[in-house]
């Protein structure tokens, strides 16, 4: 058989099931439905009402119980790591909260509520989308790493995506923007749509990941990020060098001495 036919055949075989796509049966089904339709309409209508009432009763009993299963995590002491039931990791900065219903989480969807600043590393699952809802904003994803920062209440919400792809929107609006790797978005409270913003630093989520990763990053950008992260002022003796490296966030002095040695420059610290 020719190549094209072989391709067609492979596609057909992939889905082939004997007796499926029965034209005669399908035709009877469609033309038959219509004849019974009027007889059944009233019955369908009344059974619809009955079903709706039943759903109300069931959901009421379920909802009134479900309070017991709400799990709340509050990061009082400092940065707190919390694993959700599907092994999605949430890292909460100090003072942030996270809340979800452990009974329904992961069934059809994965929904969490949060406040403050939280970094998520979401386990990929296309069957069950992950939605994080904050006071003003909402982010939907399939599987990715991102951070929502809503500590500045009544002004803006920032979202930073470390990897993957997310949809960022206002809490109650239906449209939003799509952010991918290394992109940031800002939602000014009161606005409908978030806006794309440039990511200010190479490692916005260093507080959660415990790492600074630099790839051909200008030394000045590195100094700026480290200065803000450690609350000090750092200056490099040269400005036109770039660095590719990975540092742990544990010790600033160690990072400084490593950069000084590799780039052969001096770094001064002014408090």
């Amino acid at each position: 058989m020719k190549d094209k036919e072989e391709k067609n055949l492979q596609f057909v075989l992939r889905y082939y099931r004997h007796g499926k796509l029965d034209t005669a049966k399908a035709l009877n089904k469609i033309t038959g439905i219509r004849q019974q339709n009027n007889l059944h309409k009233l019955w369908i209508y009344s059974s619809g009402i009955a079903a709706a009432i039943l759903i109300c009763i069931v959901s009421y009993t379920l909802l009134s119980r479900s309070d017991n299963n709400m799990i709340s995590v509050t990061a009082d002491a400092g940065i707190t790591r919390h694993f959700l039931p599907d092994s999605t990791l949430a890292i909460l900065s100090k003072g942030s909260t996270l809340e979800y219903d452990s009974d329904n989480y992961g069934k059809k969807s994965r929904e969490v509520n949060m406040s403050g600043k939280v970094f998520f590393s979401v386990r990929r699952n296309e069957q069950s989308p992950f939605t994080a809802t904050a006071m003003y904003a909402q982010v939907k994803v399939l599987g990715t790493e991102f951070e929502i920062d809503e500590r500045m209440q009544d002004t803006v919400t920032n979202v930073y995506v470390k990897s993957g792809k997310v949809m960022f929107k206002g809490r109650n609006s239906s449209k939003g923007i799509i952010l991918t790797k290394d992109m940031s978005g800002t939602l000014t409270h009161g606005n409908e749509m978030p806006e794309m913003t440039s990511t200010a630093f190479p490692n916005p989520s260093a507080w959660a990941t415990g790492k600074f990763v630099y790839k051909n990053t200008p030394i000045d950008a590195v100094m700026k990020e480290l200065s803000i992260y450690y609350g000090t002022s750092l200056y490099a003796s040269e400005h036109f060098k770039t660095i590719t490296a990975e540092f742990k966030t544990d010790s600033l002095d160690e990072i400084i001495s490593l950069i000084e040695k590799t780039l052969d420059i001096t770094i001064t610290k002014k408090d």
């Binding site: 796509l21 034209t23 399908a26 035709l27 469609i30 033309t31």
Partner: peptide, 8 residues
Amino acid sequence: KDNFRLYY
């Protein structure tokens, strides 16, 4: 019916 048989 003809179209159904033809295109289903």
